[in-house]
């Protein structure tokens, strides 16, 4: 009990001290997950719009597939990206394995289905009357689509935050493709796993507290967006 209290107080001390190692690990985590989220949004939002507004064969199958991919196990994604990026793999020539780029790629695969699928749900749940009203007021089909996207903005933001929460807390995939190299690919979750193994709990706890704080901030943001979306619909 004493040991836990001591570790916790040291952990808080590390946070308050703004320990350099701690800060660099947090910044790398945010950079990797933030980049993955931005790229996922850049691909996922047009994809969601295409599925919501487009009419093409096998659209339903495609939507189902995306929903299924939302639950992809991170270690499987890690393994797949590892095989693709390893020296003998098809993209081995890019020499990306054990780099932050490989970690971003793995996180994109995890975040993209969440962003696309939840954004698609948000878009199709916009009242169909909005499309008609927009048309009757003289909007072009493109402007109608933009209006629907605007109406779905809280749902889309919820999807983005859910995806960010998932990739920030993820450990399996980035451990496999990043290698947990100190000062290069070591992020919060992989550091916690490593330091716990070593019995060095103060850094692990400090990062755990910060991860929890980020997770709480994301959840608070999520509930604000959900509430806003619900009260204003």
């Amino acid at each position: 009990m004493n040991y836990l209290a001591e570790s916790l107080s040291r952990a808080f001390f590390l946070i308050l001290q703004l320990d350099q190692e701690l800060i660099s690990i947090i910044l790398l985590s945010l950079r990797v997950s933030g980049s993955a989220l931005l790229i996922s949004a850049a691909i996922g939002l047009p994809l969601a719009a295409l599925m919501a507004f487009g009419r093409f064969p096998l659209r339903g199958v495609f939507v189902n597939l995306l929903n299924t991919f939302m639950g992809l196990p991170p270690v499987v994604v890690g393994l797949l990206v590892y095989l693709l990026l390893s020296r003998s793999g098809p993209f081995g020539f890019l020499a990306l394995l054990y780099t932050p780029s490989a970690m971003i790629i793995a996180q994109i695969i995890l975040a993209l289905p969440i962003v696309a699928s939840l954004s698609h749900s948000a878009l199709v749940s916009v009242d169909p009357i909005i499309r008609q009203v927009s048309t009757t007021l003289g909007a072009t089909p493109f402007q109608v689509s933009l209006t629907v996207i605007r109406e779905a903005r809280y749902g889309i933001m919820s999807g983005m935050m859910a995806a960010f929460g998932r990739v920030m807390a993820e450990v399996g995939a980035i451990l496999i493709v990043g290698g947990n190299i100190a000062g290069y690919t070591r992020v919060m979750t992989t550091t916690i796993a490593l330091e716990t193994d070593k019995g060095n709990f103060e850094l692990a706890l400090a990062l755990g507290i910060i991860l929890l704080a980020i997770s709480m901030a994301i959840n608070t943001g999520l509930s604000i967006f959900r509430r806003k979306g619900m009260t204003e619909l």
Binding site: I129, Q132, V133, T136, L137, T147, R150
Partner: peptide, 19 residues
């Protein structure tokens, strides 16, 4: 579209934008 922009229709369920 240029013809459609010379007329407007108000539907029975007005369809309010979330703004």
């Amino acid at each position: 579209i240029s013809l459609k922009r010379r007329m407007t229709l108000v539907l029975p369920q007005v369809g309010i934008f979330n703004a």
